[in-house]
Design a protein around this nucleic acid. Structure first.
Length: 554
RNA sequence: GCGCCUGUAGCUCAGGUGGAUAGAGCAGCUGCCUUCUAAGCAGCGGGCCCGAGGUUCGAGUCCUCGCAGGCGCGCCA
């Protein structure tokens, strides 16, 4: 059990023990926090203040009673000392043994340290990126990919069954437009006069695609009529671009369990079925030739069109079909990761789930804010209209996968991200990803050296001699890892992992300079090696949760 | 106009369910390599937490109203 959980349950039992005597019938939530200041204990609780407020008594009086109760509850002797402080905090100082025991548990658990079963029995559907196959992924998509993939890893680490899915919008106007754009570029490549559609895709990648197509089929379609050539070019454009997207994501170490084509929803009749269900439930009406969904009654700003005047369904209609399929597949939770520009769509989709009679509480939509690339202190300009944007691939080629993933996850996705390419490329302390990886490489180096000296880590290292404040601080940092992981699961915020790793790295590098691991007394060397191994474990595991490698050498 | 996100050190950002003296990196300055990796360490400055009210024993955190930036508000996807 996580140290924090131990303390929480101690405080909870103490409160319960006293409740009767206080004549308190309700159960108050207790909260335990790690104080900012070390001198305020390993943990502190404001339980006494909460109770005091409820009973209209003096907080410090209650605190004194709780302290006594805590002492009685602590049968294992985990608490070293307790104090009442400030307005009524109870500061809890744990016995050093607690950290050593946790260290031993970390060593025993190895790569499983920090994992849990909290998600056992839960199936989570995670949809992320899902960029339209009309062009290569750009840096914004990269952020969604990094966040989605990290969340998937974290959820799996905590016992959830995760299905990662990419929804491919391979239907509609845009694919038509894409096909026309490619055809135009192809004719150009064949030396024929051609004009790009008014709202066509103008990016340079379309020119390259056209050349690739021509390399395969020659001039066969150079003089073909639009109608006969278009199906081929539509398919060709979509397929090739999607293939590029898959390759980019694979290069970014992002994999999916399923690439779900929108076409399949239409072919299977699921879109029609979902609309029929809405209709049966009285959620649909006709107006001016179109079919509307009464979403305004369900929390949306206004009613939305499902079927256009010309009989074609909207993107929204397909998405209703898609999400009712997810519901039917029985996930306990659905997480959609979207770009911030889609936020207006959230209430619409929720309305749809409600309209279908489903609980929209199972759906969580994470909105990822925008990314600005910074090079040499200046923003890199991007314009989607002209098709000129920096691709994910370009960033990967420039800074590498590890740095890219790390930088994407170093900020909460609630906030705009300034991605500093210059910094991501530098190989020094300035670059936090190397700073962390260096811990792993250093510790690996220590073990290589130890092996050379014939000093291997034994079965039962004498952890009890780890008594220095610096050693304790490191042990506490290791012990906090499971808590960080569960916090990520609760908040669905993976940026907590890199921040934690930075703290661990800080502590380790400082320790490394102040103390030695090898060449101490045999007992001390054993204990220090054990500590090093545990640090390496949490660093390796933490990095793996965000998809960053942990090198043995640098 | 309405909605969502954001506003914390010169810059980029952390600051679970409200807690005690608000943190880190960058940038600037000063030291430290005969040692298990200097991709490292130690130190020095730096703050009206956008503003105004409110709730509370206690507010960077919650509420209201402003201000500023970003993004949306299609029978596009």
């Amino acid at each position: 059990m996580d140290v924090r959980q131990i303390v929480e349950s101690l405080v909870l039992s103490a409160v319960r023990r006293k409740r009767g005597g206080w004549g308190m019938e309700v159960e108050l939530p207790v909260s335990v926090e790690i104080p900012r200041q070390e001198s305020h204990g390993d943990f502190s609780t404001n339980a006494a203040m909460q109770v005091a407020r409820h009973l209209h008594r003096k907080p410090r009086e209650i605190a004194a009673e709780l302290v006594a109760a805590l002492r009685e509850e602590d049968r294992e002797g985990r608490i070293a000392s307790l104090e009442v402080a400030g307005p009524g905090f109870i500061n809890i100082f744990l016995s050093e043994d607690v950290w050593r025991e946790t260290l031993a548990r970390a060593l025993a658990a190895g790569p499983r340290f920090g994992s849990s079963r909290v998600g056992a029995g839960q199936a989570v559907h995670l949809e992320f990126v899902s960029a339209n196959p009309t062009g290569p992924l750009h840096v914004g998509h990269g952020r969604g990919a990094a966040v989605g993939d990290a969340l998937a890893r974290i959820l799996e680490f905590t016992g959830h069954r995760v299905v990662r899915e990419y929804y491919v919008n391979d239907v509609g106007n845009q694919m038509d437009n894409l096909g026309r754009s490619l055809l135009a570029r192809y004719r150009e490549a064949c030396g024929r006069p051609s004009i790009l559609p008014e709202d066509g895709y103008r990016g340079e990648y379309m020119v390259e695609l056209a050349e690739a197509v021509r390399a395969e089929v020659g001039d066969r379609y150079a003089d073909a009529a639009d109608e006969s050539a278009l199906p081929f070019f539509r398919r060709e454009a979509g397929d090739r671009i999607l293939r590029g997207i898959r390759e980019d994501l694979a290069a970014f170490r992002v994999s999916y369990d399923r690439w779900f084509p929108e076409q399949e929803l239409h072919a299977s009749g699921e879109v029609t079925a979902a609309l029929a269900k809405l209709r049966d439930r009285g959620q649909v009406y006709e107006s001016e030739g179109a079919t509307y969904f009464r979403s305004a009654e369900l929390g949306d700003e206004k009613d939305r069109v499902l079927v256009r005047g010309d009989g074609r369904t909207t993107y929204f209609a397909a998405d209703i079909g898609y999400h009712s399929r997810k519901v039917a597949e029985g996930y306990s939770r659905m997480i959609d990761i979207w770009g911030a520009d889609h936020h207006g769509y959230v209430s619409r989709l929720r309305a749809a789930l409600k309209g279908l009679g489903e609980d929209d509480g199972r759906l969580t939509v994470l909105l990822i804010q925008f990314v600005t690339l910074i090079r040499d202190g200046k923003a890199v300009q991007m314009s989607t209209r002209s098709g000129e944007f920096t691709t994910l691939r370009e960033v990967l080629d420039e800074v590498g996968v590890d740095a890219a993933r790390f930088f994407y996850l170093l900020r909460s996705y609630h906030t705009h991200l300034d991605f500093d390419l210059t910094l991501a490329k530098t190989q020094s302390r300035n670059n936090p990803v190397y700073y962390i990886q260096y811990v792993h490489a250093r510790i690996s180096s220590i073990f290589r050296e130890a092996e050379g000296r014939g000093e291997t880590l034994g079965e039962h290292p004498p952890l009890s001699i780890l008594t220095l404040p610096e050693e304790t601080r490191l042990m506490k940092a290791v012990a906090r890892f499971p808590d960080v992981v569960s916090e990520c699961v609760k908040t669905l915020e993976p940026h907590r992992i890199p921040f934690y790793l930075l703290e661990v790295a800080d502590l380790f590098h400082a320790f490394y300079h102040q103390h030695r691991f090898l060449g101490e007394t045999p007992e001390r060397t054993q204990a220090r090696l054990a500590l090093a191994l545990a640090v390496r474990t949490v660093v390796a595991t933490g990095l793996s949760l965000i998809g960053v490698t942990a090198p043995e050498r640098m």
